[in-house]
């Protein structure tokens, strides 16, 4: 599904991502962990197209995508849920989610100006799917509200709903649980598990290591822009390099919980 080969990206001479190679097979839930500044978000931004790599390649579904602009990658099925909210503040919750469908639909400005029948049909479909997506993340009751009025936890759900509207084949989740309360985290975990069970390929960056250990099929560990380990949660937990570089205290902490 996704093959990242020797990907590098530097900012002013400092490598945020250095010679990173990751292969994620279809349907896998891949955890990505590492200390702050390890290059996790940079990796996601490179895959999503928000940053251009200095070297290396990205293959998605068998084709090179590393030269494609963001919206083309979105149309191919790469969706990203950003760490910050990045909502569309002037729009309602429902409209925010409906924008997500742009990656999977067609009608253009001319069809809209003339209100062609095909365009109206597509609109109806988008609206129905948006309500369904909102229901799925538990935001149906908020559909008509201003998006900027939502509390943080719900903004995150809104982003997930928006991403789902694009019918993604690869979902990149950048710390979706940060700032959420325990119950909200639990609900988010269930949603991720469910999407995974439905066959969606997911990459999950998360500081909550115990959550990643629980959800992920395999985990990639980054440190200072490089991959230092890759394996199943059990392997990662035992990996001496990971423990030295990063896990140590946190793993002990997670075990104690």
């Amino acid at each position: 599904m996704l093959t990242v080969t020797s990907l590098s990206r530097a900012f002013g001479g400092v490598y945020a991502t250095k010679d990173v190679s990751v292969t994620v097979p279809e349907g896998e839930l891949r955890g990505v962990i590492g200390p702050n500044g390890a290059g996790k978000s940079t990796l996601f931004n490179l895959i999503g197209g928000h940053l251009r790599a200095n070297a290396g390649s990205i293959e998605f579904g068998g084709a090179r995508v590393d030269r494609l602009p963001v919206h083309r990658r979105a149309r191919l099925g790469i969706a990203i849920v950003f760490q910050g909210a990045r909502l569309f503040p002037e729009m309602s919750v429902l409209e925010n989610v409906m924008v997500g469908a742009n990656a999977a639909t067609r009608a253009g400005a001319v069809a809209a100006a003339l209100r062609l029948p095909s365009q109206r049909n597509e609109e109806r479909g988008i609206r129905q799917r948006a309500f369904a997506a909102l229901g799925r993340v538990g935001l149906a009751a908020w559909a008509e509200r201003d998006a900027e009025a939502l509390p943080l936890g719900q903004q995150r759900r809104l982003q997930v709903a928006r991403a789902l509207m694009g019918e993604p084949r690869l979902l990149l989740l950048d710390e979706p649980a940060s700032g959420l309360r325990a119950a909200e985290r639990e609900d988010l975990s269930e949603l991720i598990t469910e999407l995974h069970r439905e066959g969606m390929t997911i990459m999950l960056i998360e500081h909550d290591v115990s959550m990643v250990m629980r959800l992920a099929d395999k985990i990639t560990v980054l440190d200072l822009g490089e991959v230092i380990a890759e394996g199943t949660p059990a392997e990662i937990r035992r990996n001496q390099r990971v423990i030295d570089a990063y896990l140590g205290g946190e793993a002990a902490h997670a075990d104690a919980e």
Binding site: H50, P69, A74, R86, R162
Partner: peptide
């Protein structure tokens, strides 16, 4: 609202 989020939603 956000060019990056719009692009990620498939908006050219």
């Amino acid at each position: 609202g956000s060019e990056s989020a719009a692009a990620s939603s498939g908006v050219p």
